[in-house]
C-alpha cells in the first residue's frame, strides 16, 4: 500500500519552505552580525520564484526509470531540488566604511521570515491533525 500517497504536494511544499526559511534566517543573522564590518556586502536567499516554477512543473516531475521503481508522485521530485539562490544585495546605501547593511531592513525581513516560518509550522501541524482525524474516524 503506497503510504506516501496520503501526503500530497502541499505537505512536501510546506516542508521544503521550512527548510528554505531556516537558511534565509541564517543569512539574515549573518547580515546582522556584520552590520559594523567594513566592506561587507549583505546577501539574501531568494527562493519564491524557484518554488513557483517547481510547482508548475508538477506532473512532469520525476518519472520512474526502471519499471520496479516506485515513481515519485506529482511535483515532489522537482520540489526537492529547489535550493534557493544566495543573492548579493549590493552596496547602494553603504557608508564611508563600505558596509552596505541596512539594519532596519534586515530587522523587518527577519520578523517577516519568523512569522512566515511559524505560520508554516502551524499549517503543517493542521494538515497532520486532519490526517490523524481521518484515520481515527472521529475527533
Amino acid at each position: 500500500m503506497p503510504v506516501q500517497g496520503i501526503f500530497g504536494t502541499t505537505v512536501e511544499l510546506l516542508g521544503k519552505s521550512l527548510d528554505l526559511r531556516a537558511k534565509r534566517h541564517a543569512l539574515i543573522s549573518s547580515n546582522l552580525a556584520n552590520v559594523e564590518t567594513p566592506g561587507y556586502t549583505p546577501s539574501e536567499l531568494s527562493f519564491e520564484g524557484q518554488l513557483k516554477s517547481a510547482l508548475n512543473q508538477g506532473g512532469k516531475g520525476a518519472s520512474a526509470s526502471h519499471p520496479r521503481h516506485i515513481p515519485i508522485k506529482g511535483a515532489s521530485g522537482s520540489l526537492q531540488r529547489v535550493e534557493g539562490d544566495v543573492v548579493d544585495l549590493g552596496n547602494a546605501r553603504s557608508g564611508p566604511d563600505g558596509n552596505g547593511v541596512e539594519l532596519e531592513a534586515e530587522m523587518g525581513r527577519m520578523a517577516e521570515n519568523q512569522i512566515m516560518y511559524n505560520a508554516t509550522v502551524q499549517i503543517l501541524g493542521k494538515k497532520f491533525e486532519g490526517l490523524k482525524q481521518a484515520i481515527r474516524g472521529t475527533l
Binding site: H25, I28, S29, L32, A33, V35, L103, E106, M107, M110, A111, N113, Q114
Partner: peptide, 9 residues
C-alpha cells in the same frame, strides 16, 4: 539587533 536574531532562531 543580534539578541533579537538569536531569540528569533
Amino acid at each position: 539587533a543580534n539578541v533579537t536574531a538569536a531569540q528569533a532562531a
